[in-house]
Amino acid sequence: MNTQASPVLKVEGLRTHFFTRKGVVKAVDDVGFTLGPGQIMGLVGESGAGKSITGFSILGLIDPPGRIVAGKIIFQGEDLIAKPASELEKIRGNRISMVFQDPQTSLDPVFKIGYQITEALFVHHDLSRAQARDRAEQLLRLVGIPSPAQRLRDYPHQFSGGMRQRVGIAIAMASDPALIIADEPTTALDVTIQAQVLTLMRRLVQQKGTAMILITHDIALVGQFCDRIGVMYAGRLVEKGAKEEVITRPLHPYTQGLIASIPGRQERRRRLRQIPGMMPNLIGLPEGCPFLPRCDQAGEDCRQRPALAEVAPGHQVACFRRQGR
């Protein structure tokens, strides 16, 4: 697919900072990527790397004390950062939608499922009650919920976790968005349900040509379901490229660590390991490479911050060791 011609989403130099009492948390610090129609990009990284904040920034849902301080978010040719709140409301849930991590808490407990789906339809479309109900029923069927007409009258607590996540996906798909941001959509589900839900999402996305950002901390999932991978560390993208490239030839020491720690890869069994150390505090991060304290390949030059640079066609990494310096 030619992503260069008409990308659905183009993020450039995105910086989202939180101005807390203790200091500035640079949760997202110079992140950029491009996503074409029908593409699925996996955004991986450990907890606190800034994956969710990247997603919320795209939707314009950063609450104070957070603020997008720089960058461009070009969605279908328009810069979302420049748009007023009322314009963003029309885009959210309509042309860009989001699936949340925890289906137990992402639906309003005191409203019926049917209400929560049709409500999303009414805000964006001129529909009659009957039309909205039909569409809601159709959506539930689409995500594989049995006897959808009856289930519309149920409350969230009457669904299992997996079923609730399907409802969340149905709501996200309601207006046939051009982009879906799925923030760890299966982390709260057990393993068999995980695969079902992700397979479902991939099928729906491919049918409609929807682009998707799949946020996860599980690089194995990304290998299975994505076309492209972005690896985040301490608010920055440290490596990105086509899935096969990154999985088979990881370049950044952090990515290498992540891949080596995937359990069950026979050929690497003996080398299964954890990355030593912890991600640094995002307040007052030192100037240089954020991975420096945990890196076994670091040199003197790593005290300066490495930028992403292409080292193979379509494969970029932010590490001096791989950039031939």
């Binding site: 849930g93 992402s106 639906l107 709501i171």
Partner: peptide
Amino acid sequence: DFVKFLKAKGLSENRVVYVH
């Protein structure tokens, strides 16, 4: 969480606050 999800659906702040 669900408040953020409601906003992600495109609901206005007023609707999120005064209904949900």
